[in-house]
Design a protein around this nucleic acid. Structure first.
Lengths: 201, 201
DNA sequence: TAATTGTACATTGTTAACAATTAATTGCAA
DNA sequence: TTGCAATTAATTGTTAACAATGTACAATTA
């Protein structure tokens, strides 16, 4: 059963802005004007401010008191490397945790997400592909560790993703995800971990 | 020179609430009422909402749309363990990064922070001790990796700290920090890392 | 009685006006 | 022209009223 989750106005606005930033449409250091955003989304400044605070805490924006928010710069290569390590640690934890502890329904969900990835890849919708990629990982991270683990994980991956303006333009990306789900399906966490390692870089 | 940084109203409110949560004064699942908080801090609900969003992103609160925010529950032992790993990874990165790259002034700052810890310990002000402990680590993490690294690190340590209602009631805690600074002063990052490992658990 | 609907209340979400702060511009003097 | 000060404009911060939503409890029905 497809769960069409209802999203609050604020979460929808956040999604759009995250998308704009990760896709590179909003370049680093771009200043975000609250009034303009309010007009763009047809709300007042209140909800916009809420979203800006959220995205700042997620690392996508930098805020200065009485000055405003602007798009973060890419991480230094060193911090990027550290982020990859942390992300791997979290996702390897998740995969281990799911061994012998995952339902057919969840596996089907993940298959569906990968199908969506394939579709975006075929249509060369690379921003959507990136978002669906994140959606996939978010799914099994949440499955393994709930909201707590997701909260640890999310800022790390979002910030990393800013450095991938150019998505790896390859069918391999989709296939890697199939391998991970296959490993989970076989309850082979070692294989799944090796899949995660290959995928996260 | 002691830098008495000016804090915005919102950041001061956030500090107080973080303190209340980490000290256990606000117990897990306690519901926070925006109106009541506004009256307590003598502001309107606007700035309060900003703070609640921040603390939610830091993992100290859980928020539900149209319902409100409440204090998070402690991490499961498994997630606590993972958090310790991540925190160590980050701080070890920081210490390595500071080798041969730290000023006398910074070392003096850290000495001063540890003196403050000692003072709080002597006076049995354990909540303040915890905060100063965090301040110490935040200082050299920020030194090594700036705002970006601090943003990665902060939610991890805050969430961990919720599990330490009872602070380790020992002079050892203070001494461990002296050892870390000594190692940094000697530019011996291996020794510093071993100090970090001992201290973070 | 148990479940369900309806109503009143409390709380969060949103808005628009106003205050405070920062950034930009202008005018003046050297 | 350049440097600086004062003024103006633009932007963020705060507030209080109002709207929308969720919660608790009473009334109703099976």
């Amino acid at each position: 059963m497809k769960s069409n989750k209802i999203l609050s106005v604020r979460e929808q606005i956040a999604d759009v802005l995250r998308s704009d930033i990760i896709s590179g449409e909003l370049e680093p250091n771009t200043k975000l004007n609250e009034q303009q955003l309010a007009e763009r989304f047809g709300t007042s400044r209140g909800p916009i401010r809420d979203v800006l605070i959220k995205l700042t805490k997620e690392g996508l924006l930098v805020s200065k008191d009485n000055v405003g928010s602007s798009v973060s710069s890419p991480l230094t290569p060193e911090l990027q490397k550290l982020s990859i390590d942390i992300r791997r640690k979290i996702e390897e934890y998740a995969v281990k945790h799911l061994e012998n502890n995952i339902s057919d329904e969840d596996l089907a969900q993940m298959d569906a997400i990968i199908d969506k990835m394939q579709e975006h890849f075929d249509k060369e919708e690379f921003t959507e592909l990136t978002k669906t990629d994140i959606e996939f990982h978010k799914y099994f991270v949440g499955l393994a560790g709930g909201e707590d683990l997701t909260n640890l994980w999310y800022p790390v991956v979002l910030r990393m993703r800013m450095n991938y303006q150019r998505i790896r333009n390859s069918q391999t990306l989709v296939d890697e995800h199939r391998h991970i789900v296959d490993a989970l399906r076989k309850n082979d966490s070692k294989l799944a971990i090796s899949g995660i390692r290959k995928n996260i870089k």
